[in-house]
């Protein structure tokens, strides 16, 4: 392995509409806790968590950006320099995913170099039958539950892997 790559810092952002569970996903991943009280994120909150991928240490700097239904309203300066992002929808609220294809297009234009994952969160609120019947415009990469922790670590680790792999192929 390249000696310059034993440790690396990556900025990632969590985006999506209000109350889809962005902050809860981060809390579950960083502190292993689910916040019982809903507090809306004002502006921005930055967190960090180290992920070990084999010999490589990836320090994820996670920008939790206040929910916006229209991504155009997200300040560009919060997204600058982001290596990746997770677009989060609430599976139990159609209003958070009905426009997701358009929202993702806008975000891609705002962060052309950033890698993307889509998370369908609050999986625990739906039955298996309801999950199967969902017709989302974009298929989520991960169905997650910040409440139970299902697929949360897997999703962040997967994004870290994509970012590192991207470095390896572009180096």
């Amino acid at each position: 392995m390249d000696s310059t790559k034993q440790g690396i810092s990556k900025k990632i952002a969590l985006l999506g509409s209000h109350a889809v569970g962005k902050t809860s996903l981060i809390s579950r991943f960083v502190t292993r806790e689910f916040p019982n009280e809903y507090l809306t994120t004002i502006g921005l909150r930055v967190d960090q968590k180290t992920v070990q991928l084999g010999d490589l240490t990836v320090e994820l700097i996670i920008w939790d950006i206040a929910g916006q239904d229209d991504p155009v309203r997200i300040p560009q300066y919060y997204l600058n320099g982001a290596h990746g992002y997770i677009f989060v929808v609430d599976l139990s609220r159609e209003s958070t995913w009905s426009q997701m294809d358009h929202q993702i297009q806008v975000l891609e234009a705002m962060m052309p170099k950033a890698k993307r994952l889509v998370a369908g969160n609050k999986k625990d609120l739906l039955s298996d039958k309801e999950l199967q019947e969902l017709k989302l415009p974009v298929t989520p990469d991960f169905l997650t539950s910040a409440f139970t922790g299902e697929n949360v670590d897997e999703m962040f680790h997967h994004l870290a892997q994509i970012l590192v792999h991207d470095d390896a192929t572009t180096a």
Binding site: S9, K11, G43, L44, R45, V46, D47, Q48, E59, I61, W63, Y78, N80, G81, A82, H83
Partner: peptide
Amino acid sequence: DSGLSMAHYSLNEVTRSQMVAGMLTG
């Protein structure tokens, strides 16, 4: 652009320098 801390020196031990750098940039 990214708000990533490239270097940090402290008289006191501050372990979460990336968080501070990110919030400061924000």
